[in-house]
Write a protein that binds this DNA or RNA. Structure first.
Length: 576
RNA sequence: GCGCCAGUAGCUCAGCUGGAUAGAGUAUCGGCCUCCGAAGCCGAGGGUCGCAGGUUCGAAUCCUGCCUGGCGCGCCA
């Protein structure tokens, strides 16, 4: 169930019934428990519209709401708030429904399922993934999982950078400096080494640079040798990317890189010219938004810098392949929506891209899910000790090492430490990233991240393990087999129950807004409410009915924590 | 010059489709293990919500201007 949507519905009906008016009830959880569980603030703006005293309207709404079984009391407070307290028995019944829904924990699916392509991670071929790829990869995977869970048809697409000017250099570089054995053993390291040498040589040696351009042209014209070498480089890179994705537990439904759209690019440009959306300028083919009648975005309308789709030398750009990609997503996947999980710095590019697609009359919703950059302490760029770029693999190594050291320190048995260092270390990295609102910059801090205290991944895993331990003691190997009647008596039980009741709403909001941190907030709140409950409400030692009810609350909490962590891509170990 | 994002407790961050006394974590201080996992819980102190105007019954939230920081702006991706 989605509690707030449900309250919105009955609130709206109450307004219509009591006042004969149509108005939004404006449902919010109360900030202070003394004001009840939820408040409806809709009477205040309505009073202004109807020119009536707000408390009078609120009173009529409250009286109508109180006739609902779900509502224990509805009272008027302050200038015209309606404070609602939910009925304990009704809340307990809803949690019972969730408990019996073993597949979805009571979370409904969206009314209208869409086909959504999520474009995320997108590393470049022949380069290692580094910290810059962390956020897109982790946030993207969480967005895919969440959209899929609420009932959409989702295609996670790794739009890798596998085409472009660097291949000319790599091809001549491999011929001049390459080592096939090294390419087999450590492919990316070898490609990076060759690229560095080739690019340095090209700067000093004009013939070498010209050769690189010629080889690129041959590759793009379909030359068999160059094509074979390119394929070899792509395959080698793919192999080592897979190692990192395996460690992260992340997979894709498609790997359609830029090269996949190569054939479509001339057609895209022709189409733009035919439709008079693009024109030639200084040899390049450009879209000038400030010259086009149909541009609706006021910011673009006055923008003088063009969106270039073909360079003066005839080569295409990522703008061109991005348009072709959107067309393919519509034609091939039947996508209703395409979501780009890409650094916020590319916001302008997407703004332009989306407008071009709209001008072309494409029937697809396009969204840029941007995020801030990762920085080190003090907001400075993140670097290794010797000033180098931090690779993603190196980051994961360090996370595991730190998790291991901490667990050894805490006295965990060696077998457990060995089994948990991956889930805990990598889970901590993911949680730290996801728990922050993605739009702001993210300050990387190992000590905050790999900690069993506070709002961290390990703390949540610990809370989960505690639930499982308690359930095991009661003879339940699996939280989904617990099915007792819930009664709410102690305040801590009620607080926990109200939090549990919000899960469906949280998941749907997180999905709709592409905000995984809402899931983090919820799960963290659950862990805290659980700990308080745990202190004040004995479970195993209580008499039969209370014991059964409390075990059910613990089981449902465990299931929601596991489900939440699951959507975030974080493991929930049974023991730690 | 144009544009985007950010500025909230010492630090790291929530809260931003307007609602009651602005919340967490961390750090600091004080309590709680003969009792289901103290990796925890309970409590205290700590705020000109960058500044100034405006709209409103009501502004951290909306509007305008300014300040500070980060970033993007013709043939890279």
């Amino acid at each position: 169930m989605r509690i707030e949507s449900w309250l919105d519905g009955i609130g709206r009906a109450a307004i219509t019934e009591a006042l004969g008016a149509e108005a939004p009830p404006v449902v919010r959880p109360t900030q202070d428990p003394r004001h009840g569980d939820y408040q409806l603030n809709g009477a205040l703006p309505l009073a202004k519209r109807e020119k009536k005293p707000p408390r009078e309207l609120a009173g009529a709404i409250a009286a109508t709401l109180e006739s609902q079984d779900a509502i224990a009391s509805a009272t008027v407070a302050g200038p015209g708030f309606v404070n609602v307290r939910l009925d304990d028995g009704w809340v307990a019944d809803r949690l019972g429904d969730a408990l019996r829904d073993r597949a979805r924990d009571g979370v409904p699916k969206v009314a209208a399922s869409e086909t959504i392509v999520v474009d995320f991670s997108s590393p470049n071929i022949a380069k290692q993934m580094h910290v810059g790829h962390v956020r897109s990869t982790i946030i993207g995977a969480a967005i895919v999982a969440t959209l899929r869970f609420v009932g959409h048809e989702v295609i996670g697409d790794n739009h890798i950078g596998d085409w472009g000017t660097q291949y000319g250099l790599l091809i001549v570089g491999m011929r001049a400096f390459g080592n096939d054995a090294a390419l087999g053993a450590k492919p990316i390291e070898e490609l990076e080494r060759v690229y560095r040498l080739a690019s340095a040589r090209a700067k000093e040696d004009d013939t070498f640079a010209a050769e690189a351009r010629a080889e690129l042209a041959k590759l793009q014209a379909g030359d068999a040798d160059n094509r074979a070498m390119w394929e070899k480089m792509v395959a080698a890179t793919r192999k080592s990317l897979d190692v990192v994705y395996d460690r992260l537990g992340i997979s894709f439904d498609a790997w359609l890189g830029e090269s996949a759209y190569e054939d479509a690019l001339p057609g895209v440009v022709a189409q733009l010219l035919d439709a008079d959306i693009a024109r030639e300028d200084d040899g390049a083919i450009c879209v000038f938004f400030n010259e086009l009648e149909d541009v609706t975005d006021p910011k673009l309308k006055k923008q003088e810098v063009p969106f270039i789709v073909r360079k003066r030398d005839g080569a295409f750009l990522y703008s061109t392949s991005d348009i072709a990609t959107v067309q393919h997503r519509v034609a091939h996947f039947g996508a209703d929506r395409s979501v780009y999980v890409v650094d916020a710095r590319q916001g302008q590019h997407f703004r332009q891209l989306f407008e071009v697609c709209r001008l072309l009359g494409m029937n697809i919703a396009l969204e840029h899910v941007g995020f801030g950059v990762i920085t080190g302490k003090g907001g400075k760029p993140i670097k290794t000790r010797d000033g180098g770029t931090v690779t993603l693999a190196g980051l994961l190594d360090e996370a595991e090492e730190r998790a291991e050291a901490l667990m050894v320190d805490m006295g965990l048995v060696p077998e457990l430490v060995a089994a948990l260092k991956g889930p805990v270390g990598i889970g901590a990295v993911k949680y730290a990233d996801l728990s922050q609102n993605r739009t702001s910059n993210y300050q990387f801090d190992w000590d905050k991240m790999i900690s069993f205290q506070g709002n961290s991944g390990p703390y949540l895993q610990y809370a989960y393990a505690r639930c499982r331990s308690l359930l095991r003691k009661a003879g339940h190997g699996d939280p989904s087999e617990v099915d007792g009647a819930i009664r709410l008596e102690a305040p801590a039980e009620r607080t926990l129950a109200l939090r549990l009741l919000r899960w469906g709403e949280v998941v749907h909001t997180a999905a709709a807004q592409h905000h995984p941190h809402l899931i983090c907030d919820h799960v963290y709140g659950l862990a805290r409410d659980l700990s308080s409950f745990y202190e004040s409400c004995p479970v195993l030692k209580s008499e039969a009915a209370a014991r059964e009810s409390r075990l059910a609350l613990v089981a449902l909490t465990a299931r929601q924590i596991a489900a939440g962590l699951g959507l975030l891509g974080i493991a929930a170990p049974e023991r730690m």
